[in-house]
Design a protein around this nucleic acid. Structure first.
Lengths: 246, 246
DNA sequence: CTTATTTGTCTAGTTCTATAGACAACCAAC
DNA sequence: GTTGGTTGTCTATAGAACTAGACAAATAAG
């Protein structure tokens, strides 16, 4: 039935954990919130009970379920933060009401030659100098996203200073003469978290990150900002609201 | 440096493979396309050369790299299909020009009582009868997405028949009196592929799926369609174009 | 209180993962 | 052709993951 595979580099207990996680997400145990017994899961997955226990232990560590002896395992409701992807998304504004406190921290900024995709997105010559800004987005002291932004170097040379002063990219851009800017497009995909992601976002191996690639620009003007972000898929959903539709 | 962790249910070689995959995605080896030698990677990751070889073998199986004896390993450029998420996205239309042939196939359709989220999204009473339609989206015979759609049962009872006749949900809806419908919103997250995903989308353990949850409705009307889709993250990026912006 | 059910813990044996080292096969450059 | 660098293959060993079975401990229901 639930064909698990061996020799894939993913331990059986983790495949089972992923499966149960997906089932919870599909609302499988919605009525009572109770998972099948360990014995039942073991036969369902065609696996030893100890292997199921390892999977359940992992889910319990992640706070997905709560297990007590003699009773069973129960789903713990947990919501992901909803991160809006709209024409005018701002990091902090979009998360308001969902968390007590948001913070975005600049990790590093430097000038570097534009790589091919950066140059193309910003309409610059290849290898043209660009300002690179690495940032970490946090909500209630939990890291949510790791983003790298690129800007044309000459026009935005003092952006990091303004950012330090204001604590907001939007305001720092305004100080550089960008009155109003909008998100032009966003490409979204996903991948297993790399070691770097795990360090930055405090994730465990096997975690998944949402990868977004977006370009922001001035209204009626050209592109201003090229960004690559990595979100912890455990913690956020990207929410695309259609401005036209309703 | 690249802190790999043990006893996590993810074999070291797979963590390394994920890491190299991410590095390729970040354009790390863009200049020559050549990866470091196995020996170099082994020291970089603090691991035995055989472990690195297992990682490279996995990447080669996935078509990410090409390895030849005496030369080394080289990145194979491979593009993901871009799946547009806009107000008026249609499965086949959005992929035109990227692949030779797209196909969407109905797997199953049945009437069932609405679960809580379905009822809420479609503005129906809980447990109200809804039509559930399971579909598989393919491009050039490769499965791309697995979607489940829900519609109000009474109004769209004959939708499956119309779909069989026209081969398109848009046209089938038109036959049910829905003149023009638009995407109202889409929530996007990601997770490891479950066993069911692996079967439906022909994926390997450790693969990642993009999960979308969307509601479509009539222009100036209420919600009509509630959908949950699962995309192979290896094969697609979701592309959000802002209609207002530019 | 008694009983059936369910989770927790222990031991032992097997299979997979990772390390270590050695050497062959192949490629590119001289 | 020779050399240096790189990937391919083999053997052996240690440790982690998985299986199997048994029994204790906690819960819930009668």
């Amino acid at each position: 039935m639930s064909s698990l595979e061996r020799r894939t580099g993913i331990a059986l207990w983790r495949q089972i954990a992923d499966d149960i996680r997906a089932a919870i997400g599909n609302g499988a145990y919605e009525d009572t919130g109770k998972l099948p017994t360990e014995a039942a899961l073991a036969t369902q997955f065609g696996v030893n009970r100890h292997t199921v226990r390892a999977a359940l232990a992992a889910l319990a560590r992640d706070g997905m379920i709560d297990t007590t002896q003699g009773r069973g395992s129960f789903v713990v409701a947990r919501k992901r933060l909803s991160y809006p992807i709209g024409p005018r998304t701002r990091f902090s504004a979009g998360l308001e009401g969902q968390v007590a406190r948001t913070r975005s921290r600049a990790l590093e900024s430097r000038i570097e030659p534009a790589s091919a995709p950066v140059a193309e997105a910003l309409h610059l010559a290849p290898e043209a100098p660009v300002l690179r800004l690495d940032m970490l987005g946090e909500a209630d002291d939990t890291p949510l996203s790791r983003a790298t932004h690129w800007f044309e170097a000459s026009r935005f040379a003092h952006l990091p200073d303004h950012y330090r002063a204001f604590g907001s990219i939007t305001r720092a851009l305004a100080a550089c003469g960008v009155e109003d800017y909008v998100r032009l497009f966003t490409d979204i995909t996903a991948a297993p978290a790399s070691a770097a992601d795990r360090q930055d976002l405090d994730l465990q191996p096997g975690a998944v990150v949402l990868l977004t690639l977006s370009v922001n620009g001035e209204v009626g003007g050209g592109p201003v900002q090229y960004s690559r972000s990595r979100f912890s898929a455990d913690r956020v959903t990207l929410s695309v609201r259609m401005p036209g539709g309703l």
